[in-house]
Nucleic acid binder design. Sequence first.
DNA 1: GCAGTGACGGATA
DNA 2: GTATCCGCCACTG
Length: 111
Amino acid sequence: MEKNIDFFEQVWDVVQLIPAGRVTSYGVIATYLGAKRSSRMVGWAMNAAHKYPDIPAHRVVNRNGLLSGKMHFSTPTLMEEKLSQEGIEVKDDQILDFKNHFWDPTIELEI
DNA sequence: GCAGTGACGGATA
DNA sequence: GTATCCGCCACTG
């Protein structure tokens, strides 16, 4: 499906820039790409990224810090397990102290 | 070509 | 604080 992956490619690039132990939200990435109104597209990008091993999709969660996409991983527990390995506490499919682990590309990358 | 849907977010009640 | 609605763009049936 390598056709027009402009948006997807940008999303993946940002996701790969997320440092270990940090997480971000779909909306932030969409905003960073200038498509904040298309936050759903970020989700689609992640869905397509599922076949790319270099895309740490487990570091991308929704605005509430909820692991909304855990069900799309190989196993439902893989996502929180990965985050846990990076020092991120996950309870009830939700990231604890999400605000503290939050990584904002619009700030860290300083566009 | 039309309708439904989706790893979301913001606004409104 | 929660509940509900709408918009947004791409993909699938």
